[in-house]
C-alpha cells in the first residue's frame, strides 16, 4: 500500500510540475481570493486583521476544490482510469498517493496565503507552532476528504459543479476549527487555540480511514 501510494504520489506530483496548473492557476487564485476579500471588507486595517484567519481558511478551502478537480482530471480520460485499475495497484495506495499529491499542493498554497495575510492584512502570528500544527492537520483532512469526493464524482459529466457542493459542507469543520486555531495563534491564546486541534486531528484521521476503506469500491464506479 505504501509503495503504491509513493508511486502514485510521485506520478501526480510530476504531472503537476509539468502542467504547472497548480503554479499558474491554483496559487494565483488563492491570492486573488484574499485580495477580493480585502475589497469586500474595506480598507480598515482592524476589520481585515480580525477577519484574516477566516479569510485564509476560506481561500484554502476554495483552493482545495481546485486542486481536487485537477487531481481527478489527471485520470479523467478513459484510458488512464482503466490503466490504473488494470495495474492492480491497491486502491488504498491510489487514495493515499493522490491525497499526498494534493496535500503537497495545499502546503504550497498555504505558505503563499500565510505570507499573503501577513503582507496584505498586517497579521502577526504570536504562536507559530499552533498555526503550523493546525495547518498540517487540516491539510491532511482536506486532501483526504477532497480526493475521496473527487473519486465519487470522477467520470461524471457534472463533476465540476457537483464536487464543490459535496466537498465544501464536508470540510466546514476544518474552516471552523482552522479559523479559531489561527485566531488563537494570532492573539496568543494558546490554550483555547490548541483545543481546536482536537477537531482537526480526528477529522484528518476519520477521512484517511474512510478513504482507505472505501476508495476501492469507488474506483469501480467509473
Amino acid at each position: 500500500m505504501w509503495r503504491d501510494a509513493l508511486l502514485v504520489a510521485g506520478k501526480d506530483v510530476r504531472i503537476e510540475l509539468r502542467s504547472r496548473v497548480a503554479l499558474w492557476q491554483v496559487l494565483p487564485f488563492a491570492v486573488l481570493v484574499l485580495v477580493l476579500f480585502g475589497f469586500a471588507l474595506g480598507p480598515g486595517p482592524a476589520a481585515l486583521r480580525a477577519a484574516a484567519p477566516g479569510l485564509y481558511w476560506l481561500a484554502v478551502l476554495f483552493s482545495t476544490v481546485l486542486a481536487t478537480q485537477r487531481s481527478v482530471a489527471i485520470e479523467s480520460g478513459e484510458g488512464t482510469r482503466d490503466g490504473l485499475r488494470l495495474s492492480g495497484i491497491d486502491p488504498a495506495g491510489v487514495f493515499l498517493g493522490k491525497a499526498a499529491a494534493v496535500a503537497i499542493q495545499l502546503v504550497a498554497v498555504q505558505v503563499l496565503l500565510g505570507a499573503g495575510i501577513v503582507v496584505l492584512f498586517d497579521v502577526h502570528l504570536q504562536t507559530w507552532w499552533l498555526a503550523i500544527a493546525a495547518s498540517v492537520l487540516a491539510t491532511v483532512g482536506l486532501s483526504a476528504a477532497g480526493v475521496l469526493y473527487g473519486a465519487l464524482s470522477a467520470g461524471l459529466r457534472v463533476r465540476e459543479t457537483l464536487l464543490p457542493l459535496l466537498v465544501l459542507p464536508i470540510v466546514a469543520p476544518v474552516l471552523i476549527a482552522g479559523s479559531r486555531a489561527w485566531s488563537a495563534a494570532v492573539s496568543g491564546a494558546v490554550a483555547s487555540g490548541a483545543s481546536w486541534l482536537k477537531i482537526l486531528g480526528p477529522f484528518a484521521a476519520v477521512y484517511l480511514a474512510v478513504g482507505i476503506a472505501l476508495y476501492g469500491p469507488l474506483q469501480e464506479t467509473a
Binding site: E78, L86, S87
Partner: peptide, 20 residues
C-alpha cells in the same frame, strides 16, 4: 479485480498520461 494485474489490455484510448 484479481485477474487485472495478469492481463494486458490495449484499448481504443491508450492509457497514457499526457504530461509524462
Amino acid at each position: 479485480t484479481l485477474v487485472r494485474r495478469r492481463v494486458g489490455l490495449l484499448g481504443h484510448a491508450p492509457s497514457l498520461y499526457d504530461e509524462l
